[in-house]
Design a protein around this nucleic acid. Structure first.
Lengths: 196, 196
DNA sequence: CACAATTTCAATAATGTTATTGATAATCGT
DNA sequence: ACGATTATCAATAACATTATTGAAATTGTG
């Protein structure tokens, strides 16, 4: 009989959290399975009850990381609000994922390259689609005259995503800089720029 | 007698290039000294004629990477041109370093965290100063009324640097996207935004 | 409680990696 | 061409890491 009691799921979750934390802190290759085990208070070999291989663990962590991004973006495109509001929501969702699941997001951003090609498929597809959706949002904004006609939607989308991703490099250093504050700042800069 | 013939320097340079390329491609821990040796066409043990340890190699690569950034930024602050021009030059210098020394820059950006604390000192100091100089440029621009008074120079500096750094993630994928084009795009977006 | 399922352990095989060393080959200046 | 300097090699010690296995402990259930 399959158990799948809430307890088992909780433990599985703890395991993924530990893997994400260790991968984020040390990088995939810099992290050892022993590090993950130590964080869970179990022995290195015991981990293999939860995964088949270290690679599989990385894949799972990356998937959680990227899904945090993609989750809400669909609804945002569909919603009937101004372009500014769409961008504000996109940024908020992006930064929100960073705040609530920093380890997963950081691992997705920085460690997915270490997955062998045959494990990269879905992760790559999801992240490509994410940028594509943002590009589409910008394109529609250009059509509706809400953004400059000279704006290249592709480049602008890459810039917006890069801008949000870069927050991961320093978020948390200064407690004054809340997600809300940073989000407003990025949204404003993206739409109006810093020029007087 | 110390030789220091041009040849020796050239070889030293080749060695650093190889280390940078391998670290950039596989990450510090994912890269083996054997990988670096293979790229140079020599045996793994022979590398230790050029460095004392893998860590030292990483430190040297990171230093070259960060110096590419800091090099020109000083002159830009001093120069007597408009804020827009200062920012345009800053972005151009940043992206230029990315284009001409991508491997070194990528290693500095993504791998410096794997240096032990006692090797991080100078690298950290240089990169802090880099952001500080940009912050100062923006502050002076705020004082001169060239940028919005509501702009937070610190956040804006972090954003500008993050934006430029994020180009490393995709630069080179599309040959149509030249450094000049990307630079103009970023400068425009940073100052005027994409809004109509 | 007793039984079955779940979770962890101890021990270890197989492999890979860094760094050292003394010998050897290649190169340079005279 | 010769001796000295520079560069590379072969071999290996020491160590770390992943993954496997069968046993043991723990937990949940009737």
């Amino acid at each position: 009989m399959k158990r799948e009691s809430g307890k088992a799921k909780r433990r599985q979750h703890e395991f993924l959290d530990a893997a994400a934390a260790v991968f984020a802190a040390k990088g995939y290759h810099g992290a050892t399975t022993g590090d993950i085990a130590a964080r869970l208070g179990i022995k290195q070999g015991s981990l293999y009850y939860y995964f088949r291989s270290k690679e599989e663990a990385l894949e799972q962590v990356c998937l959680v990381g990227v899904k945090g991004f993609v989750q809400t973006i669909e609804d945002i495109t569909a919603s009937d609000v101004s372009l500014r509001e769409k961008i504000a929501r996109t940024v908020a969702a992006h930064l929100g994922a960073l705040a609530t699941r920093k380890d997963y997001v950081v691992v997705f951003l920085d460690q997915r390259q270490h997955l062998p090609p045959d494990r990269r498929g879905e992760i790559l597809a999801q992240s490509r689609r994410y940028v594509q959706v943002i590009e589409d949002i910008l394109k529609s904004g250009r059509d509706s005259g809400e953004i400059k006609s000279s704006t290249d939607p592709r480049l602008a989308a890459l810039n917006l995503v890069g801008l949000c991703n870069s927050v991961a490099d320093w978020y948390g250093h200064d407690p004054k800089l809340t997600i809300e504050l940073i989000g407003k700042n990025i949204t404003n800069m993206f739409i109006e720029g810093v020029g007087a």
